[in-house]
Design a protein around this nucleic acid. Structure first.
Lengths: 129, 129
DNA sequence: CCGTATCCGATGAGATACTG
DNA sequence: CAGTATCTCATCGGATACGG
């Protein structure tokens, strides 16, 4: 039953063996889920707000991604029986546990993009003949 | 413009605006890149080692993913002009900066899977009639 | 040993029109 | 307002055969 001897090597080994990365990517991956999750991490939003805020998304995709996140227990969908109808989405407790990961990914992504752009600019400058 | 007053809200706002998550996912996403990156984060590996170690991957996909990671400056490809031929892959310095993110994603993914499984088991137990 | 080339099905995702 | 339904196209990824 899994000794807890925490050498660095063992910790890293654990990562390879089980590789939970795929589980994470299955939940947060794809073209639109990052945009949805980023927004919902600040609180509740209505369907129409998400649609207006996420540029370029079609209704079909927005609904599909919201349904998947709901099935994966990351967000909740609350329907208010009013006229006109209102539907609000928000992170579950489980969904809120993602915030650290989302921030880490966002930070690395920004660093990476800056790095790539910087190198391209330097390259452009040195190759002017 | 942009006041640098670092309230919590503003820090979070930064995440939404730029959302580097998509940049991260563009580099590490997909079916096979997690497996490749996990393995290369321990050091150099040969093509054949990767192929043997990553169960189910086809040569077509292995090569394609390695080429993309190389283009994205995450790994290097070193060809040794020997007989038989030898090709070694390893993370670049830039690639090594991903390790924190990979671990965070792996940890959350494992936590998530455990959480889901646990709830399913409890549900199964309570619904036995 | 380290790949390419080719074919093909499954899935992701856009556009448009319609509905309770 | 908050969605469905349908059609279409592009990309991802698997299987197999062959090449330096």
């Amino acid at each position: 039953m899994r000794k807890e001897t925490s050498t660095n090597a063992l910790n890293e080994k654990k990562m390879i063996d089980t590789c939970g990365m795929s589980s994470s990517l299955a939940v947060i991956g794809g073209r639109w889920k990052p945009a949805i999750l980023c927004r919902l991490s600040y609180g509740t939003m209505r369907y129409g707000e998400l649609k207006k805020d996420i540029e370029g998304i079609s209704e079909r995709m927005l609904v599909a991604q919201l349904r998947e996140l709901e099935k994966d227990q990351i967000i909740t969908r609350m329907v208010f029986p009013e006229v006109p109808p209102r539907v609000e989405y928000q992170l579950t407790d489980l969904g809120r546990t993602m915030k650290t990961m989302l921030n880490t990914m966002s930070d690395w992504g920004n660093m990476y993009r800056n790095h790539i752009n910087k190198n391209q600019n330097e390259l452009a400058e040195t190759t002017i003949d």
